[in-house]
């Protein structure tokens, strides 16, 4: 198992956001976490990526315990993520956004950068090339020199993925990547997620778009009010009585 959560609990004040949740993500898989709003999906992401710490339970990544480590350390160890509400660097260009994604692949510090020491030149060139490649992957090279803020939402989501990819994650956490996308863009996203898996990147996905989720995910975990109510292949999840009850009234194939 690449990622293994064991008995995770976390509450905010009186609200039990996650209650004794255990789930695991096999290496190279696409796993989805679904559930109604407020089920604790984003909280789960924040725990795995180091933005929150669990009150109980343990998280293993590549076989090592990682809870308690700050977000930037986990990022450097290969946990990449996107955000439910897109978090771009609005005052920077599209290319620069992705160049920040390459941060952990570079070495140049403040002084070296300020003095433009000769050894930083090849590194800058590499960062530029890597960033460009990530933009090519999501098809945003024609927007490279626009400010991130002016992109439409669909392209912002793609840029966020490109930026996360530039950091060469082992596992990529995608938090509702299809929300705000139109049908064509969602189709493109679907192909992209599959292509990433083929490149060997493990994907953990939170998504409300059920057809996309059922389409790409090999395993689905279902959260409801902070509890894990089901975990298994899509077909089994669709027939799971508790899941159907939790989703009563919603259209599976929407």
């Amino acid at each position: 198992m690449l990622l293994d959560l064991q008995g995770i609990s976390l509450s905010f004040g009186g609200v039990q956001a996650l209650d004794d949740v255990s789930l695991s993500v096999p290496s190279g898989a696409i796993k989805a976490v679904i559930g109604p709003n407020g089920a604790g999906k984003t909280t789960l992401f924040n725990l795995v990526s180091g933005f929150l710490q669990p009150q109980e339970g343990r998280i293993f990544f590549k076989g090592e315990e990682i809870q308690g480590q700050p977000a930037h350390v986990l990022a450097a160890r290969g946990i990449g993520r996107t955000f439910q509400l897109v978090q771009l660097f609005d005052h920077m260009t599209v290319l620069e956004n992705v160049m920040v994604g390459c941060h952990r692949r570079g070495r140049a510090g403040l002084l070296a950068g300020a003095l433009r020491l000769p050894w930083t030149f090849p590194e800058e060139k590499d960062i530029r090339r890597w960033a460009w490649e990530a933009l090519e992957f999501v098809g945003l090279t024609n927007r490279a020199h626009h400010f991130a803020a002016v992109l439409p939402l669909g392209l912002k989501r793609l840029l966020e993925i490109a930026r996360a990819l530039a950091a060469q994650p082992t596992i990529l956490l995608l938090d509702e990547p299809a929300s705000g996308l139109d049908a064509v863009e969602t189709e493109r996203l679907r192909d992209m997620i599959l292509a990433l898996r083929d490149q060997g990147i493990t994907i953990l996905l939170v998504e409300h778009d059920m057809s996309l989720t059922m389409d790409v995910a090999e395993e689905i975990a279902v959260l409801n009010y902070g509890r894990l109510i089901a975990d298994g292949p899509p077909r089994a999840i669709q027939k799971h009585p508790e899941v159907i009850a939790a989703y009563l009234g919603t259209d599976w194939q929407a």
Binding site: A71, H72, D90, V100
Partner: peptide, 14 residues
């Protein structure tokens, strides 16, 4: 500049 715009995103990138 990145941390000025979004500290969370900057941290998520290492």
């Amino acid at each position: 500049r990145a941390l000025h715009d979004s500290e969370a995103a900057a941290r998520s990138l290492g």
